[in-house]
Nucleic acid binder design. Structure first.
Lengths: 155, 155
DNA sequence: AAATTGGTTCACTTTTTTATGAACAAACAA
DNA sequence: TTGTTTGTTCATAAAAAAGTGAACCAATTT
């Protein structure tokens, strides 16, 4: 464990942890995300994660396996070593963003089913639902141009 | 309790409940949201909610109060009755959407702090972080025009 | 072969979240 | 006044999530 974490880094890890926790991520997963961001080398071995975060091996094992399935984390090995060096799959951020933005629009399915199932005792409410639904569909169509616009603007 | 819920509506309520649950909302709150969407009149009294969802009065009381603080639900009364008729604040959806979309960009604060705190042992990783951060800032600037674009397109 | 390293698995404990139900209160009705 | 309706509050129970530690396994070292 080469790097010693500053207080600022420790606090930042916790803040990142809470942030993700509030969005439905398991607490330890959020902290591992934070740790791997904050470390200068942006990687850590299994044992380092255990030591930095003061948690059990089993908790880390479960969290890391889950995060690998979710495609958030990968590991590499170094010649002659058996240790795994875990790091965030940062290259994949565009995909990740796309998924996140699209997730908002997932509600359309439910909204549409609600609209279908409602008897028209309250048309103005149904119209509201329809409008939200239309907006979400509009947003979905605009996602690609959001990425294009960004690339154009910076490139 | 005038309306009798069809199986389809019951299932839809559960699906909507799970959907919101997975995004960090309390289970009962998600189900109340679903119920108030699915009911033809788009409203229900306290007791109806208790009966439709088979939960205790205290659970409903807590959930409704919370949802009112969060500005998701309101109630009206009818002349000569003490009962409250609860309904979703559907008029407010644009604000709600804005908040949801902006929430994604909240990560910029943390990302920026991570970038600040990192020693440059791994510049390519830091560059990735910077790029994500820039993208999120770009998205934030584009939110208003998203709403404008939608209004223009439909109006 | 014995010991060590690097991690996994599983039964169990701890903690947190969610829901219950009894008691209570305020408003009205008989 | 007494009873009823419409909720609220609080202590607690039930359920779910998260984490622990011992036992284990496979690969490597001694």
């Amino acid at each position: 464990m080469s790097e010693i974490l500053s207080e600022r880094k420790k606090e930042l890890i916790e803040k990142i942890g809470v942030f993700h926790e509030q969005r439905g991520m398991q607490p330890l997963m959020g902290r591992i995300l934070g740790l791997l961001m904050v470390l200068d080398e942006a990687e850590a071995t299994f044992e380092e994660i255990v030591d930095y975060l003061n948690v059990s091996k089993s908790a880390v094992s479960n969290a890391l396996n889950f995060m690998q399935i979710q495609n958030k984390v990968k590991y590499k090995t170094k010649p002659g070593e058996r240790k795994r060096y875990f790091y965030l799959k940062a290259d994949d951020w565009e995909n990740d963003m796309q998924t996140q933005i699209e997730d908002i629009t997932q509600a359309t399915h439910f909204l549409q089913e609600v609209i279908d199932v409602r008897e028209q005792a309250n048309p103005s409410f149904t119209n509201h639902l329809q409008e939200v639904c239309s907006f979400l569909e509009y947003v979905k169509t605009k996602i690609p141009s959001l990425f294009e616009g960004f690339r154009k603007q910076k490139g």
